[in-house]
């Protein structure tokens, strides 16, 4: 068996946020800072889907945003296909796609315009762009709506357009924060099928979710984040230790919470 090629390496990632007076009141704490991510390390390999599993506020989105260079870590580092997220931000951005339910598109524009716009930003050659546009638009059924304004598209179609314009540059790493959040079952299936297709093509996909079945269905390896800390990270089988993912997660969660209370 070939040795897996490490595409993503995360080492000792830490990130804390200053709490406003309002947030302190809301979280019933006098602490000025909240440690969102604490010493998180993991790797992802070529041609695999890696899942970050955790409850709300566990630090999944912060980790994903840090990898996408949207925010900078307080400590630690990460490399995407050899590019450093701290010193080679533009190279990192050209190697990955970052998708999230929060990422929105300008509603005034058409999918066709947005595809061309993001292709230009990523420096995709016009000939390559047209071929890729045709391929992706057909794959997601966007071709019929290519000249319709985003504002007039259904929520599911908007999510497909969002996905397509994020991968105009055919990146090797796709980071997807909560990939099926807010999607109807049909669109959710289209998205999960596409992620599996990307894996087949040798791409590395990192997803974050709190849905156990999604991890079980898609992921080769999983990392469990609780209170900003990686409490388990390995292949799905090794993490589960013979239990279902859900049971294993709650066992880890109770241990982590018990430790926190103690």
């Amino acid at each position: 068996m070939d040795k897996p090629v490490e595409i993503l390496k995360v080492s000792g990632l830490c990130k804390r946020f200053k709490l406003s007076a309002k947030q302190q009141k809301l979280e019933r704490t006098k602490e000025k800072y909240k440690q969102a991510v604490k010493d998180v390390s993991f790797s992802a390999y070529k041609g695999e889907i890696f899942g970050l599993l955790g409850p709300n506020g566990a630090g999944k989105t912060t980790t994903m945003r840090t990898l996408a260079t949207l925010i900078r870590p307080d400590a630690g580092n990460a490399w995407i296909d050899g590019a450093n997220i701290l010193t080679q931000e533009n190279q990192v951005r050209s190697k990955l796609a970052f998708l999230t339910g929060d990422l929105k598109l300008e509603q005034f524009f058409t999918p066709n315009y947005l595809f061309d716009f993001f292709s230009d930003l990523h420096g995709v050659e016009p000939q390559v762009r047209e071929k890729r546009k045709q391929e992706l638009f057909q794959r997601f059924g966007i071709d019929r709506y290519a000249l319709t304004k985003v504002a007039e598209l259904s929520q599911g179609m908007r999510q497909k357009v969002s996905l397509v314009v994020s991968i105009v540059h055919d990146p090797d790493v796709i980071i997807f924060d909560e990939p099926t959040n807010g999607l109807d079952v049909i669109t959710a299936k289209t998205v999960t099928d596409f992620l599996l297709e990307l894996k087949e093509k040798g791409k590395t996909v990192i997803i974050s979710t709190h849905i156990f079945t999604l991890i079980e269905k898609l992921c080769d390896r999983v990392g469990i984040l609780i209170n900003g800390q990686m409490v388990a990270c390995d292949t799905l089988a090794n993490v589960c230790e013979g239990l279902s993912l859900e049971d294993r997660f709650f066992a880890l969660y109770e241990t982590a919470e018990g430790g926190k209370e103690a």
């Binding site: 996408a68 929105k104 598109l105």
Partner: peptide
């Protein structure tokens, strides 16, 4: 407000 700024910031444009 619309959340479209992040979409721009993750492109390799400085």
């Amino acid at each position: 407000e619309r959340g479209t700024i992040a979409t721009l910031l993750i492109t390799p444009v400085s």
